[in-house]
């Protein structure tokens, strides 16, 4: 077990390294170079030359990559072209904002989705089950920004002016005005829940048909004990992996949602950076999102291993 986990860990680090290489090389493929991107088309050759020297653009690629990577490791991500702030400082509070949003969505979505999945398994082939099944099928298909717009149309326009359609305020105090968080969080919850619900339902049905559940029932245990003591804990194992994967998806999924609601997080920072061609910020945000994604996938792998008794025992 430990060896398998260590192997996955090493593999995750390798992936992260390759991703950093991809991010770096992708930004090198820019037509012209960073100096021209900063100074614009009308820059004089002397100024371009001076800035190139300042940014060390004349060094060989390997050296540039090395110093960039060293910077990443020490959290020195360079200076933003657009607002002259150090990137790590600029992104820090935005990252907190995004993480708050993601954490709220995760904390709400996970128990609700697990409960709904278990409930529809218990009411298999009844109206409630069919309704949940149809709802998850529909929600799993619609792109998340469209879910957000439908929520805005329903709750912020027309007759119901219940909730604000956009987020006003800065990233430092996102929790100060909880009313503004309702729609973004609700959108994310609706976007991540369907696969969890479906997996929980399938897993629960399988467990409910197993012999030990039958045995527990035959012992005369009350149905509530059978379900919540015997069936549910065993059904959650395979679901844990799906939950972890969905939380990883959140890291990329927040981009469109933050853009839609004007929420001051890393996703909106990425879109702003793309519009101003702010390379250090683009590099930092894509690397950050990929890192979160890789770490969560790694956790999903480990959870999957831990939930599988065969692996747990045989590979000790």
């Amino acid at each position: 077990m430990t060896r398998l986990v260590l192997k996955r860990l090493a593999y995750g680090l390798l992936t992260l390294f390759v991703v950093s290489l991809v991010v770096f090389l992708a930004t090198q493929a820019l037509p012209g170079d960073a100096a021209r991107a900063i100074l614009g088309r009308d820059a004089t050759p002397e100024r371009l030359e001076a800035l190139r020297a300042q940014l060390r653009l004349d060094d060989p690629l390997v050296v540039q990559y090395g110093s960039w990577l060293a910077g990443v490791v020490t959290l020195d991500l360079g200076t933003s072209f657009a607002n002259a702030l150090p990137v790590s400082e600029y992104l820090a509070q935005r990252a907190v904002g995004s993480l708050t949003l993601m954490a709220l969505a995760a904390v709400i979505a996970t128990p609700v989705a697990v409960f709904l999945g278990a409930y529809s398994a218990l009411r298999r082939d009844r109206a409630a089950d069919h309704a949940t099944s149809a709802a998850t099928l529909v929600l799993a298909a619609i792109p998340e920004f469209a879910v957000g717009i439908l929520l805005i149309l329903a709750f912020s326009t027309g007759f119901l002016h219940l909730l604000p359609a956009v987020f006003a305020g800065n990233g430092q105090a996102v929790l100060e005005d909880p009313e503004q968080l309702v729609l973004p969080v609700a959108t994310l919850v609706l976007a991540v829940s369907p696969p969890i619900i479906r997996m929980m339902r399938a897993s629960m049905i399988e467990v409910l048909e197993s012999e030990y559940v039958q045995q527990a029932r035959l012992k005369g245990l009350p149905e509530r004990t059978v379900i919540w003591r015997h069936a549910a804990p065993n059904a959650i194992g395979p679901v844990a992996q799906v939950i972890a994967l969905q939380l990883g998806w959140l890291a990329g999924g927040v981009v469109a949602i933050e853009y839609l609601f004007g929420f001051p997080g890393i996703g909106l920072a990425l879109m702003d950076a793309i519009n101003t061609r702010d390379l250090p910020v683009i590099q930092a945000v894509t690397l950050l999102i990929a890192a979160v994604y890789i770490v969560v996938n790694l956790l999903a792998d480990i959870v999957g291993l831990a939930a599988n008794p065969k692996v747990r025992v045989s590979a000790r």
Partner: peptide, 20 residues
């Protein structure tokens, strides 16, 4: 495959399109 899967689809597209 595993390397490619390490990028969320949308972020990969945004990264490349922001440059090209």
């Amino acid at each position: 495959n595993d390397m490619l899967l390490a990028f969320p689809q949308l972020v990969l597209a945004l990264l490349v399109m922001s440059i090209l």
